[in-house]
Design a binder for these strands. Structure first.
Lengths: 197, 197
DNA sequence: CATATTAAATGAATGAGTCATTCAATGAAT
DNA sequence: ATTCATTGAATGACTCATTCATTTAATATG
C-alpha cells in the first residue's frame, strides 16, 4: 500500500472509531451503563451489531474511555472559567451555556450516570473518584464569593447556592426539554436569577 | 375465627400490602421499572424475596397500581391549587413545596420514569396517556397569567416559563440533593425567582 | 396447657428471557 | 486476487421474576 493511501485508511478507521464513540456517548448519557444495549449504540451509529467489536474490546471499554474523556473535558471547562472575561455573573453564564451544549451535556450526564450506577468498571470508577464533581462546586465557589462581594449575587451559603444551581442545570439536561428548543440563552438568564439579587 | 380477630387479620394484611407498595414506590421512582429488581423491593420493605407474591400478582401489577395511584394523586394536587388562598405566587409556592415532599416526589418521579421507559405495562401506559403531565402545565397557565396581570410574574410565554420551572423542580427531585437536607423552603423561594420579576 | 390447624414467611431453585460477544459469510476496495 | 471492513444470525453466560417445599408463627381446640 502506498504511503498516502495508508494514511487515508488510518484516518478512516479513526473516524469510524469516533463515530462509534459519539453514538455511545449519547446513549450512555441518556440510559446509563446497564440500560444501554450494544445494539442501540450500533443503531445510533448506523452500523451493524458486531462492528463495534472491531474497534473496541467491549462495552465496558467504551464506557470507561468515555468517562475518562468526560472528566478531562470537565477539568478543562472548569479551568477555563477562571480565565473568562467579564463579571462573575458573566463567567457563570458562559460556563452554564457551555455545559448545556450537546457535547458537554452528554459528558456531564455520563459522569452523573456513572456515579449513581452499580457495576461501573473499575477504571471508570477510579477516574471519577479522582475527580469528583464536588470539585466543580469547589472551583466555582471563589467566583461566586467574588460576585457576592461585588454585590451582584445574593447573600447566603455559597456551597448551598451552587449545589442548588447545578442541580437545576442537571435537571434541565435530563429533561432534555425538547419543548425548549436549541437556544438556551433565555433559559439560562432566567436560571441565573436563582443566584442573583 | 371470631369477628374481631378476623377484622384485625384483614387490617394486618392491608398494612403489609401498603408496606410493600411504599417500598416499591420508592425504588421504582429511583430506578424505573426495568432497573428495579423484586429483590430490592423486598429488601427495602424488610421482607423476604418471595413474600411480595402473596400480596401481588407480579412486578407489573405493582407498578401499574402505583402509576394509577400517582396519577390520581397528581390530579388531586392540581385541583387543590386552584382553591389555595393567597396570590398566584403563594399558590405556586405551596404547590411546589407539596410536590417536593417525600410522597408526592416519588409519585411524580414514577410517572416521569413511566413516560420515558420502554416496556411499561399496557394499563400503566393507558393511565398516563389519559392524564399527561402536559395537563399539569396547562392547569398552571391560568394561575401564571393571573400573576402576570397582577405584575408579580415576569412577562413572556407562560408555557415556556412553566416548562422551565417544572423541569427545574424535577431536576431537583432527581438529584435528591441530600446535601440540601429536608427543608426545601429556602430553595423553593430561590427557584421561584425564575418566574418572578 | 398441649396439640392440631391454618396461615405467613422464608430463601433456594427454576427457567424464561436478555444481551454482550463471536464468527462464518458477504461485499468493497485496491 | 487478496485484503480487510462489514454484516447479522447464533451462542451461551448471566440475570431475575416467579415458584414452592419447608420453616415459623399465630390461632383454635380439647
Amino acid at each position: 500500500m502506498p504511503r498516502i493511501a495508508r494514511a487515508q485508511a488510518e484516518q478512516a478507521l479513526d473516524e469510524r472509531k469516533d463515530q462509534i464513540k459519539r453514538a455511545a456517548l449519547k446513549v450512555f448519557a441518556e440510559k446509563g451503563l446497564a440500560g444501554t444495549k450494544m445494539s442501540i449504540i450500533a443503531e445510533e451509529a448506523g452500523i451493524s451489531q458486531g462492528l463495534s467489536y472491531r474497534y473496541f474490546e467491549s462495552k465496558d471499554e467504551i464506557f470507561t474511555l468515555l468517562v475518562e474523556e468526560a472528566i478531562e473535558e470537565s477539568q478543562n471547562a472548569i479551568r477555563n472559567i477562571q480565565q473568562l472575561p467579564g463579571s462573575p455573573l458573566e463567567q457563570l453564564r458562559t460556563f452554564t451555556l457551555q455545559l448545556l451544549d450537546e457535547n458537554h451535556k452528554h459528558y456531564f450526564l455520563l459522569v452523573q450516570q456513572a456515579q449513581k450506577s452499580e457495576g461501573v468498571p473499575r477504571r471508570a470508577k477510579e477516574a471519577i473518584e479522582r475527580y469528583s464533581p464536588q470539585e466543580t462546586i469547589e472551583l466555582l465557589i471563589p467566583i461566586f464569593v467574588r460576585g457576592q462581594q461585588e454585590g451582584q449575587f445574593a447573600e447566603g451559603d455559597p456551597y448551598r447556592r451552587l449545589i442548588l444551581f447545578l442541580s437545576v442545570v442537571t435537571g434541565l439536561m435530563l429533561q432534555d426539554a425538547k419543548a425548549i428548543g436549541a437556544d438556551w440563552t433565555q433559559e439560562v438568564d432566567r436560571l441565573l436569577n436563582i443566584l442573583t439579587k
